[in-house]
């Protein structure tokens, strides 16, 4: 196949992924809107009950077995027998949304791979390519997180919307045709550095979404507010745990991305650190997340305050990604914005 064909295929896949994601977004939103109690949330709750109070649960309708998949179905069936038709519809919507997300992820993956073939290199040489690859990583991280902790499926709509926005921005504003790289970018450190940065971006984003929901759920729990969403989301403690795990995983990776970038810079410019805006903001992001990890170990800072620090860190990351490329000029002239 020719380069041109791959480029067109790539664009087709990316558009296709957006279409499917848009459907997934509606399905996720509908699930949130329709169901009062969904299966996943109940699974979650069954697990909670099981873990916290290992005593028998009175009555015949709620089995007190371990919360394996069978038990979850048992709980769901019990509720369904209670005659909640809406409920079942919501569950079905949730399942559809999850499948659509997987499909969109596959399409986007193909899009990224074809782009790589079209450009004959790793497909992350300009902002269009960073954005599509990051969107892919966000989806992959979300899917794997939701597999490990099913209750987090409810993040769906909050993950899919930013991904759609990113893809839309990529295709409309940041798009550049596939082509080879500037000489300064021809280095395997680029592949390593940028890959680490992109994966970090994906994990930071999902971590940020979980953190934001933690802040909402924590507030509801503190004020004793119970609504359809609060019942459906994981507990604040679980959300906080998941967010911490994501950030603890990504912090060394981000550290590595910065170190790899410094090695690349040393090879290309003769100075491993030049304080250009991109480097400065990478360091600011790093320092803020170091602050987050510290805050979690500091009395009086656990929970809410630490979470806000993490969100500030995510904002710094996003600013570095878009803001710095657009507003500042520096040595990192590789943004490859079309109108510059």
């Amino acid at each position: 196949m020719s380069t041109q064909t791959f480029a067109q295929l790539s664009n087709g896949f990316v558009y296709g992924a957006m279409g499917v994601l848009a459907l997934a977004m509606f399905a996720f939103a509908a699930e949130l809107a329709f169901g009062t109690r969904s299966r996943v949330a109940r699974t979650n709750e069954a697990a909670l009950v099981e873990a916290r109070q290992p005593v028998r649960v009175g009555g015949g309708d709620a089995p007190a077995e371990p919360a394996a998949d069978g038990a979850a179905d048992g709980v769901a069936d019990g509720a369904a027998k209670g005659g909640d038709e809406r409920q079942r519809r919501a569950d079905r919507l949730g399942g559809i949304a999850a499948s659509l997300t997987v499909l969109a992820t596959l399409l986007l993956f193909l899009g990224v791979v074809c782009r790589g073939f079209a450009a004959k290199r790793a497909p992350w040489g300009n902002m269009y390519e960073f954005s599509t690859t990051s969107a892919l990583v966000v989806l992959i991280v979300f899917i794997s997180v939701a597999r490990r902790r099913p209750a987090l499926r409810y993040l769906g709509v909050f993950v899919v919307v930013p991904v759609l926005l990113t893809l839309g921005l990529a295709l409309s504003v940041l798009y550049v045709p596939a082509g080879p790289l500037l000489p300064a970018l021809k280095s395997y450190w680029l592949v390593i550095h940028v890959a680490a940065a992109i994966v970090s971006g994906g994990v930071f984003t999902v971590g940020g979404v979980v953190t934001a929901l933690y802040l909402v759920q924590e507030r509801w729990e503190r004020k004793g507010i119970v609504n359809s969403m609060s019942r459906r989301l994981p507990t604040a403690e679980q959300l906080d745990q998941s967010a911490y795990r994501l950030f603890a995983f990504v912090f060394p990776l981000w550290t590595f991305a910065i170190v790899a970038g410094a090695i690349w810079a040393e090879n290309a410019w003769g100075t491993y650190w030049s304080w250009d805006p991109k480097e400065t903001w990478a360091l600011v992001t790093w320092v803020v997340f170091a602050g987050y990890l510290h805050a979690r170990a500091t009395a009086g800072w656990k929970g809410r305050k630490a979470s806000i620090v993490a969100l500030v860190g995510l904002s710094c990351f996003i600013f570095n990604y878009f803001g710095v490329n657009i507003w500042f000029t520096g040595l990192h002239a590789y943004g490859g914005l079309p109108n510059k």
Binding site: T280, L283, V287, V288, G291, H294, T298
Partner: peptide, 24 residues
């Protein structure tokens, strides 16, 4: 103390920002 460390980390982050805003 841990809280001073936290404070100084934030100060470092904030302090670096003008270095990216103004030409150096």
């Amino acid at each position: 103390s841990m809280r001073t460390a936290l404070f100084l980390l934030f100060l470092l982050a904030v302090g670096a920002v003008p270095g990216s805003v103004f030409p150096q």
